[in-house]
């Protein structure tokens, strides 16, 4: 074949990308406390341990609360910003959008540290609420990126037509724009949810005494005895996020089909 070299490379690259993840179930089902070859035998006890772990359940509950709130807030803020960015031109727009999108290129440690300093100075007690504040900040730019694509594939004359046919600006938004960008909103919400669920640094700095799933995982990684259970947890998480992603992708494609635009590829 003509590009066989390139094809072989692509295959090797996928192996590189997937190797760490492929190893998760291998050790999650391995009946041995040491994470090494050769394997010992099949067991489900790590999963059993996982589901009995109450600290983990607490961390998971916290994480789900944080991720859900982040998802709603970041998507709402994202809708405002994406709508503004795709529909209007105004002086200062580049600056405003630049600030909002800044967390994309800012090391998360900086976001975390600066928020921490301000929250402590303002006397705000650290909790999962402060984690939500930080997560919304970093998830919003991703939400905007997804929503921008949804909003910019809208023909502007659609809303002018509704306005022209007697609707107000608000009812136009409700009757025309919202239904057409709904798939984008769903995939933005799923993305913000996933980002928040996986975010470590900000949660590490801002959660105070409380734990989220990543900070819990981080704390357990120091104890070799706990590693097999973490492998089981990782396996569960991989399955969940693949399902979530597939849903997001499904809605993104449906959105493209609905507005009759062309598919320009993944999460760009």
């Amino acid at each position: 074949m003509k590009f066989s070299g390139l094809r072989a490379y692509a295959f090797l690259y996928l192996v590189f990308l997937y190797a760490p993840i492929a190893l998760l179930p291998v050790f999650a089902f391995n009946d041995g406390t040491v994470i090494a070859f050769p394997l010992k035998g099949f067991t489900l006890k790590w999963f059993a341990q996982l589901f009995e772990n109450e600290t983990l359940a607490g961390a998971l509950t916290n994480s789900l609360i944080v991720a859900f709130s982040t998802s709603v807030l970041a998507t709402t803020l994202g809708i405002f910003a994406a709508r503004s960015a795709t529909r209007y031109n105004y002086p200062g727009k580049a600056g405003a959008m630049g600030l909002i999108m800044l967390p994309l290129v800012l090391p998360e440690i900086i976001v975390a540290v600066s928020l921490l300093v301000v929250l402590l100075a303002a006397g705000v007690p650290l909790s999962i609420l402060t984690v939500i504040l930080g997560h919304v900040l970093v998830a919003t730019p991703y939400a905007i990126a997804v929503l921008n694509a949804a909003f910019s594939s809208l023909d502007r004359s659609l809303e002018e037509a509704a306005y022209d046919l007697g609707e107000t600006k608000w009812s136009t938004f409700r009757l025309i724009i919202l239904p057409l960008v709904t798939p984008g909103i769903i995939s933005s919400a799923l993305m913000a949810f996933t980002i928040s669920l996986d975010e470590f640094i900000i949660a590490f700095f801002l959660a105070g005494e409380q734990t989220t799933l990543p900070t819990y995982i981080y704390s357990q990684l120091r104890f070799p005895k706990q590693i097999p259970m973490i492998m089981a947890l990782g396996t569960v998480l991989v399955v969940c996020s693949v399902m979530l992603l597939a849903t997001a992708e499904y809605f993104r494609r449906r959105g493209i089909a609905k507005t009759g635009a062309k598919d320009t590829g993944g999460f760009l």
């Binding site: 037509a161 022209d164 609707e167």
Partner: peptide, 20 residues
């Protein structure tokens, strides 16, 4: 007078048919 209150209606170049 905003567009929704004017006694005019428009046929757009792209037709602006609501796809949903």
């Amino acid at each position: 007078v905003p567009p929704n209150k004017r006694p005019t209606n428009m046929v757009f170049q792209s037709y602006a048919i609501f796809p949903h």
